[in-house]
């Protein structure tokens, strides 16, 4: 009886998982597709940043959970923000991250990538997908995608490059700004940053 329950449990769990693309497959497919699109697009290769951002918004953005990223980057300060402020924060942080991601992709899209086998149990809902950027004469740079299973598939909630977590790295900045000039101060800082990036291109 207990065995039956266990088997049923595993079956249900694996069925629930089967409806989504596995996280490592997802990362590989999306990365491969985006790198190929960049390689084929003359405008992007000539430095058209707006077009690259467009491409990332269409192909990469749906696989990120920006709400989780913002919450993690805010830490305790998240509690100080009201619903309206939270919405703006998520939106502004998303804009900043997409632009940063675009720059990183443009810089490193020609490097060789090594996709590591996923070490996770099928029932896991929080996994790390590991990719390594191979470069001559240097230790490979690991890129770790922290991913969580949501109702709409696996979503990235943090990216670690060379052991540096992106969301943790924003935490000191965000908390410091909130301490000195409040949540509105942080929103203003983010908006100003995004404006200056949009202008400079």
């Amino acid at each position: 009886m207990r065995t039956l329950a266990l088997v049923t449990g595993i079956l249900v769990a694996s069925l629930a998982h089967a409806q989504f693309e596995a996280p490592d497959v997802l990362v590989k497919n999306v990365t491969t597709e985006v790198v190929e699109l960049i390689a084929r697009d003359k405008q992007i290769r000539a430095g058209d940043r707006a077009r690259l951002v467009e491409l990332i918004e269409a192909k990469v953005l749906p696989h990120f959970n920006f709400q989780s990223m913002t919450v993690l980057a805010m830490g305790q300060s998240w509690n100080k923000a009201d619903a309206a402020q939270r919405k703006v924060l998520i939106e502004e942080f998303k804009t900043l991250l997409v632009r940063t991601y675009a720059s990183a992709l443009a810089a490193y899209s020609e490097q060789r990538l090594d996709y590591r086998p996923l070490r996770a149990r099928p029932t896991d809902t929080d996994v790390t997908v590991q990719v390594r950027v191979i470069q001559p004469g240097a230790q490979p740079v690991p890129i770790d995608y922290s991913m969580e299973r949501t109702g709409s598939g696996w979503k990235v909630y943090d990216v670690m490059v060379g052991g540096v977590s992106l969301v943790a790295n924003y935490r000191t900045e965000f908390n410091g700004t909130v301490r000195s000039s409040g949540v509105d101060g942080l929103i203003k800082t983010l908006q100003a940053k995004n404006r200056s990036l949009a202008e400079s291109k």
Binding site: V164, Y170, T172
Partner: peptide, 29 residues
Amino acid sequence: LEASRILEQAALDKYVFQRDAYLQRRRSL
């Protein structure tokens, strides 16, 4: 060169961003 350009873009306060990245990186290493 590329990394410093990305840092320039990503950071609200470059000093803080670089410091935190350094400390995280060294811990990881």
